[in-house]
């Protein structure tokens, strides 16, 4: 497995698409997490002349709250509770799908498997290498958040106060579980469909359209809530809420799942997606 892991690391590291995805993730996080919010909060539209003073004060309070949320001390809340990190779900889904599916597209599976690694070692090494890059993408997200919030503090002449180290460590864990679940969903879909195109298409449709629709549908029944508690989006949002309640102006629904249960559920998803991939590779002929 170690030999396969080293080979996979080389392949993913040297693949230009990996770094394009990293760049897209960085830009998405900075733009949607900080630049747009800061631009809006720092340059509020002029209130109408006949607006009551109370409403004007309320508007100013919301703007201040928005600006405060962008400061380093609130970095983890912005990244996780406000859903900024979920933007990366689509990116890591593509990363996972590419790592597994391209072997079918380029028919390199036969070349690699006939070298020696054995199917179990091959897939374990690949999953481990994808896991390493998922951790790197999490660290990139945290670094981008830190740099952006530092810039906001500089622009606002505010004191720079970072979250405690143990909170940062928890953030890495939450990020890895969040990205791990989405990344290995892409990985398993690519193994299932033996290619990247359908895996990415279906994965993105699920992540961006279906999950959001499920979360916003006004169905108030126990079975529906029970189903929602199983979805990836609900669990990643719930896990993110350990860093604080989402900003009310973002309209994010209250989480349904306890964070501890969400962590376990996401961990189970990661294991299940890897196990499914392994099962498929071990069972099927390589044609």
């Amino acid at each position: 497995m170690l030999a396969s892991f080293r080979a996979e690391l080389l392949k993913i590291r040297k693949r230009p698409a990996t770094w394009v995805l990293a760049l897209v993730w960085f830009v998405l996080l900075v733009l949607f997490g900080y630049v747009f919010t800061y631009t809006f909060a720092a340059n509020p539209p002029d209130p109408p002349k006949d607006q009551p003073a109370a409403v004007q004060q309320q508007q100013e309070a919301i703007n201040k709250q928005l600006l405060d949320s962008l400061l380093p001390e609130n970095m983890l809340k912005t990244l996780f509770a406000n859903g900024t990190f979920n933007l990366g779900a689509a990116i890591v889904l593509i990363l996972g799908a590419m790592a597994a599916g391209s072997e079918y597209g380029w028919t390199t599976l036969k070349t690699s498997l006939t070298q020696r690694p054995g199917r179990f070692g091959f897939l374990s090494g690949k999953a481990l290498a994808v896991g390493v890059f998922i951790v790197l993408f999490v660290l990139l997200g945290l670094a981008a958040g830190a740099a952006s919030s530092y810039d906001v503090a500089y622009l606002e002449d505010a004191t720079v106060k970072w979250p405690p180290l143990e909170e940062m460590a928890r953030a890495v864990g939450v990020g890895v579980l969040t990205f791990g679940a989405w990344g290995f969903l892409g990985f398993a879909l690519a193994m299932l469909f033996r290619g990247t195109a359908l895996a990415i298409g279906l994965g993105l449709a699920w992540a961006l359209a279906v999950e959001n629709t499920i979360a916003l549908l006004p169905i108030d029944s126990d079975w529906w809530k029970g189903f929602r508690r199983l979805t990836l989006g609900e669990n990643t949002a719930s896990l993110g809420s350990i860093f604080g309640d989402p900003n009310p102006s973002f309209g994010i629904p209250a989480p349904l799942v306890e964070p501890e249960r969400a962590a376990i559920t996401l961990g189970i998803y990661v294991a299940a997606f890897v196990a499914l991939s392994l099962f498929l590779l071990l069972r099927r002929d390589v044609t």
């Binding site: 392949k11 028919t107 036969k110 006939t114």
Partner: peptide
């Protein structure tokens, strides 16, 4: 050592 059908490698490498 084996070469099965067309040679398949990683195009970006």
């Amino acid at each position: 050592g084996a070469l099965v059908e067309s040679p398949a490698f990683y195009p970006y490498l």
